[in-house]
Design a binder for these strands. Structure first.
Lengths: 345, 345
DNA sequence: GATTTTCTTGCAACCGTTTGCGTAGACAGA
DNA sequence: TCTGTCTACGCAAACGGTTGCAAGAAAATC
């Protein structure tokens, strides 16, 4: 015996013999409505279990109170944790979150952006796919007035808002840590060359080694495309170097896991024959018998939350001065990664 | 120089001096529109980069082409994998997916349901929070005509659609496997007693032991609330039993991870002093030096995909015969879990 | 009692799109 | 010339709310 239709404002108006506008105002506690009618309306609304059709409101207000989030995948705890940060802030502002995974596929990324645009999300938070090197589809959002904030995997161009973790300080700490532990040959499992974080990592790597007056062997810095296969290949290469590197810096914990597994298969003892330091500091690694010696915490929750805050701010600003033509400025928030040491030896 | 408004059908109509209905039909390739106008309209639409305002369409059609997914969290790979299955099917049907996490908090769960209801999602897929024992908020959806399909953590009541992995066969295999390996005292780290899977697990546990004529010690079956703390407590208890259990069956891989960590801290050698078998068979465990001996694969992707298929089917059925009053039937899909052995010894 | 003010309420437009129905014009047949 | 049939399009209502403006009724002021 299901109701054909949910109760509407019209229904209430009809039953109470008042106009819809009166009902609407009564439900909003508008001062211009008499106490009598106001209570009558509110009571009937409660009885009917009335809830406004958000869709109608969205449509009318030309707003959806929804933000889109597009990221490479949900599997990595880094991203699901970032989502928590985003959700927290968004729901605090009465916004919903529409999540989509690009799976590091640029076509998918494009597709998702169009859908989100057509669905009229009020703003978008994105983390780039590993293979995304052009940003035209993102730039196009501007034309439609949809604000955009990147986080973690951000483009190198200045004309975007971004929140990301700077690799310099964390990388410096990590390498200094390894050197202090006596390591002299340190391999790097880096991400795609085009990624900003990859560049930063290489730069800092060289800087620190130079400062410490150690020999730099660029054969120890390998780019990967973040897939398991390319990680294993890179490890193969690194471990075949002579003298063999005694420590490896991996772009993130998942890559480190693959690398450690590979090393183990090569009969190397983790944290003894070869040490690992990685980025992200995900909870999973704490379950390992031999976790990476250290990991650079990148504060995914904070990154997500901050990105959401910026977006909310832009949205509410846009709501007010519809067409102030003050020059657009872009936020560029850097969250310093910090080395967390897991194992003392 | 951002456009104030996105191009609408009206705009096109105005520019071409035709009516909006003509434009609408032209864009839909309606036969009643002349070829001349049709091409004129379509071309201008392309030039203006016109895209229909989905919101307006949703509103008009009283459909949102969006399904809501509510699950305990995104952190567990089981759930993010399930989402992949859901997304795949949903996008195949041109539906968007709105994801929300209940964080095992029933209040949040309620809140999310109301929001989704007000947002007029076309259907909902849910996995219960660990503490959810009442289903009134879910039952209420029926009143609003919102179809609902549960997966994985499903209620025990018959009047819901559900897709879940049956614990019996997997559990039987798991325990027989352990017995075959010589284990006689097998502990169970179970979930909340109210959970259907917990009950099934206990049942099967006893059945198998009885069949094998082994002594049953119910002190070895402990309920937890899925938090790390309660897992550790339970482990404390299990390991203090004499004789100490030589194997432990854990409700899922994450619980197993916590348990194994605890066991290691107690100086027990995993897979030697004490063996673990768990459920879910998540990729993370493959990175351990000593993974659980075996794990019952529960096919999260398939569960998600199947749940989405059922939902799509219900939705499209509902679209057709608006008010056929045939008695509602509920789907009850069981996916048999299957034991995957990791370590031979 | 007339006029002004205040309090309540209704009217109507609007958001962008879809769709049933009506109709002008072209053309053919009688 | 008059009907009748198509073809190609426009009108207008509807989806469910919000909101500026007007206006009637009641209360207050003189």
């Amino acid at each position: 015996m299901k109701e054909d239709r949910l109760p509407t404002i019209k229904e209430i108006a009809r039953r109470l013999n008042v106009s819809v506008s009166t009902v609407s105002r009564a439900l909003h506690d508008h001062p211009g409505i008499g106490l009598r009618t106001k209570t009558r309306v509110q009571q009937l609304a409660r009885e009917l279990d009335y809830a406004p059709n958000q869709n109608a409101i969205f449509f009318k207000q030309r707003k959806t109170f929804t933000i889109g989030v597009i990221l490479p995948n949900l599997k990595e705890e880094f991203f699901s944790e970032a989502i928590n940060g985003i959700e927290e802030v968004a729901t605090g502002h009465k916004y919903s979150v529409l999540i989509s995974q690009s799976r590091d596929d640029i076509e998918r990324e494009r597709q998702i952006l169009t859908t989100m645009k057509n669905n009229r999300v009020d703003g978008i938070i994105a983390s780039l796919g590993a293979n995304t090197t052009q940003y035209d589809h993102f730039a196009a959002l501007k034309k439609y007035g949809i604000p955009l904030v990147f986080f973690d995997r951000v483009p190198t161009l200045p004309e975007f808002n971004k929140v990301y973790s700077n690799m310099n300080s964390g990388t410096r700490e990590a390498i200094e840590f390894l050197i202090e532990k006596g390591h002299r040959r340190i391999g790097v499992l880096n991400g795609p060359e085009k990624m900003r974080s990859s560049k930063e990592r290489t730069e800092t790597y060289m800087q620190v080694l130079m400062k410490k007056r150690l020999k730099i062997d660029l054969g120890l810095v390998i780019s990967t495309d973040l897939t398991r296969e390319s990680t294993l290949q890179a490890m193969q290469h690194l471990l075949s170097q002579r003298p063999r590197p005694t420590a490896i810096l991996a772009i993130n914990d998942y890559i480190a896991l693959d690398a450690m597994q590979f090393a183990r298969q090569q009969k190397l003892k983790i944290n003894k024959d070869i040490c690992f330091v990685s980025y992200a500091n995900l909870p999973v690694t704490s379950y390992l018998e031999t976790p990476p010696m250290a990991s650079v915490e990148q504060y995914p929750y904070q990154q997500g939350a901050k990105a959401a805050e910026i977006l909310m701010q832009i949205i509410s600003r846009g709501d007010k001065d519809e067409k102030s033509s003050e020059p657009e400025t872009f936020q560029n928030i850097v969250i310093n990664g910090q080395l967390v040491v897991h194992s003392k030896r």
